[in-house]
Amino acid sequence: MPSEATASNAAQLIQRVAGPADGLPVLIATMHGKEAVLAPPLAELGFQVLLPLDYDTDMLGTFSGDVRRPGTAVEAALEKARRACKATGIPRAISSEGSYRPCQTLFPGARNVELLAFVDMESGQEFVEYMTDLPTRFVKDRVPADFSSPEVQALLSAMGWPEVRALVVPEDPGQGVVAPEWVFKGLADVPSLMEAMRACAAQSSDGRLHLESDLRAHMNPTRMASVARVGERLVQRLRRQGYGLPLQRAA
């Protein structure tokens, strides 16, 4: 457990979201609502589940391309968890990372990969659980700036919009850095989407724009479901590693 001084400082930065107050504390390092699916199974395992407040996970990369991810998805997931521990004084954390563009170096042939990392800075344990080829809805295309065009309507239908929110940028984020001022995320209504399409088309190289699924978990229920599936695998791993009821630190 953290010292009283550390716990006092950390209390200003964290919020308990599930689990017993005397359980072994673990952070879920997210700013996109993943505690909704990860906290319940962790609480059932006996953890006191905490959420770091104002913790910016986007500093290690965004799907929209305005912040490039340093290193691999595995490295980013582990680093998110480590930074959350250091920022709050809580020695254990879980973080997530997803790759939905070509990731052939680590996962040859995979269409996508969803990862969850666990870090215990007291015991020194670190591990990552992952699953590939999950049914997260991720579609993208280069389309005209005409909401009523067949191309746009077909893509939105395949996306499951507006339940799955849309993201609009001038160019494909997979091809390079996108300026933050031209990133439009979480689009769920026609006026907002049309305005974003017009703005991005005016900034693009060919008068068209890049339209794709918003992959942030709180904007894409299908990705949240994928995170939940990997979460089940992570909880099984934690139990095998010695975390559970009665809770104890793994050796």
Rank of each mutant, 00 (worst) to 15 (best):
L211F: 05
G46Q: 01
A228G: 07
S226P: 13
A84H: 07
S148L: 01
R233S: 13
R237A: 15
A196V: 11
L78R: 10
Q203G: 00
H210C: 12
F107Q: 08
D120P: 13
L215C: 14
L115C: 06
R249K: 06
G61Q: 04
V183T: 13
Q12W: 11
T136A: 15
Q48P: 03
Q248M: 08
S8I: 06
S3Q: 08
A18I: 07
L116N: 11
V190Y: 06
R69I: 05
G89C: 05
R237I: 04
E195P: 00
R142Y: 00
Q248A: 15
A21Q: 12
S149F: 01
E35I: 03
G109V: 06
R208V: 00
Y243S: 02
M1Y: 05
Q15N: 04
S8C: 09
R240H: 13
G174A: 14
M31D: 15
D66P: 02
V119T: 08
M159K: 05
D206R: 01
A43P: 10
M59H: 14
P173K: 06
R82Y: 08
Q48A: 13
M1R: 08
R82N: 10
T62C: 09
A201G: 03
L187V: 02
S95P: 09
A199G: 02
E44K: 14
Q104I: 00
S96N: 13
G19F: 04
T57M: 02
A188L: 00
P221I: 02
A202K: 12
M219R: 12
L106H: 14
T136R: 06
P170S: 04
V74L: 12
V178Y: 00
E171N: 08
V74M: 12
S123R: 15
P180L: 05
V49I: 03
R69T: 12
Q175Y: 02
V17L: 11
A217D: 11
M1W: 03
L78I: 13
T88P: 09
S213L: 09
Q248T: 10
V139T: 05
R216Q: 06
P180M: 07
A5F: 09
L167Q: 13
P191D: 00
E75Y: 12
G61Y: 10
V143T: 06
L60V: 02
R92T: 06
D58F: 04
T57G: 04
